[in-house]
Design a protein around this nucleic acid. Structure first.
Lengths: 166, 166
DNA sequence: CTTGGAAAGTCAACAAGGCTGACGTAACTT
DNA sequence: AAGTTACGTCAGCCTTGTTGACTTTCCAAG
C-alpha cells in the first residue's frame, strides 16, 4: 500500500474526501468567477449570456453564428435572442460571408468592444489577484486540472481557441 | 523589468493572455463539472438546484434552512420551491429544532441519500480522472487558485464546511 | 407578560435564459 | 433540379432565479 512519504506516489489526494473538497471549491469559486461581470451587467439590460457572446466574438472576430453556437453550447434560438439585442443595440456587427454568403461573420463594434473590455477587466482583475496569491506553480496545476475536467469536445474547442490566440 | 529566466520570479503568468486562458478554462471546465449529474437528472423531475440542495444537506446533516440559504446564495422562495418537492417526494426530512423550535433541521432520507450518492459518484468519477491525470502537485495548485478566487464570504463558508468534514 | 424581531413558509408575479418544434429563405453542393 | 446547410424567427414551455407582501411560530428582552 503506497505509504505517503515513502518515496512512492501517495494516492491520498484521490480519496472521496479530497474529491469532495475539490467539488465544493469549484462550486464556490465559480460564483466568485462570475460575480464581478454579473454585478456590472446588473442594471443594464444584459446578462451573463450577453457577456459570453461578447467574450467569444472578441476572442474570435469574424466567427460565424454556427461556430459561436458550438462554443457556447446552446441552441440557435437561445443565442439568437441574445445576439438580436446586441445587434440592435449596435454592440455587434454581422457581415455576410464573402466566400459563403449564407454565413454571417460577427464582429464587435467600438461600443461592443468597450463593454467587453469593462467586463473582462473586472474578471481579469479577480483572476490576477488569485493567480498572484497562488503563484505560477499553482496556476499551472490549476490549468492542468481544469483541462482534464473538460469533455473531449469542449477541450477541443478550448485548445482551438488557445492556438488561435497564442 | 523582471526578465524571465533571470533568476527572479517571472511574472509572465500574469499577462492578460494567460489570464484569458484561465477564464476560458474555467468556463469550459465548469460545463464538464456539471455535465454528468445534469445528464442523470435530465428525465427525472429534478434539476441542478435539487442536486445542490441534496449535496449540502448530505454534507451538513441537520443544517437549518437559513444556513442552507447562505451556502447556496439564493432566496428562501427559490430554495423553498426546490425543498418543497424534495420533502414531498420523501428525499429530505425536516425536523423541528429542539432548542429553537422555529428552526427546521434538514436530513436526507434513505431515498434521498441514494440519489445523492448516484449524483456525487458521477461527479467524483470525473473529478478523480482529472485529478489522477494531473497529479497531486497540480491538484494542490488547483485548490489554491480556486480558494483565492472566492469572495471572502464564500471562502468563509467553504472553509467552515472543510473543517466540519475533515 | 408583552412585545419586538428572527426563522420559516407561502402566495403571486415576473425575468433570464435554457429547451423543442416548426417553418421560411437564401445559397451552396451534388 | 434536388438536397443540404446556415441563418432567422414564431410560439410555447421549463427551470431557477428575483421582489414584495403576508402569516405563523417562537425566542428573548424589556
Amino acid at each position: 500500500m503506497s505509504e505517503p512519504g515513502s518515496g512512492g506516489e501517495s494516492l491520498l489526494f484521490l480519496t472521496d474526501e479530497q474529491l469532495r473538497k475539490g467539488i465544493e471549491a469549484m462550486f464556490f469559486a465559480y460564483r466568485g468567477f462570475t460575480a464581478d461581470p454579473d454585478r456590472i451587467l446588473d442594471g443594464m439590460d444584459y446578462g451573463r449570456a450577453h457577456h459570453r457572446a461578447l467574450h467569444f466574438i472578441h476572442r474570435a472576430p469574424g466567427t460565424t453564428v454556427n461556430n459561436l453556437l458550438n462554443i457556447l453550447g446552446v441552441t440557435k434560438q437561445s443565442l439568437n435572442r441574445v445576439l438580436r439585442t446586441l445587434l440592435d443595440d449596435g454592440l455587434v456587427e454581422s457581415r455576410v460571408g464573402k466566400q459563403d454568403k449564407r454565413e454571417r461573420h460577427l464582429f464587435l463594434t467600438a461600443k461592443g468592444a468597450e463593454l467587453e473590455r469593462t467586463l473582462s477587466d473586472a474578471q481579469r482583475a479577480r483572476m490576477r489577484t488569485a493567480y498572484r496569491a497562488a503563484g505560477p506553480v499553482a496556476v499551472q496545476g490549476f490549468r492542468q486540472v481544469l483541462e482534464a475536467m473538460m469533455d473531449p469536445e469542449m477541450k477541443r474547442q478550448y485548445l482551438a481557441l488557445k492556438e488561435g490566440g497564442a
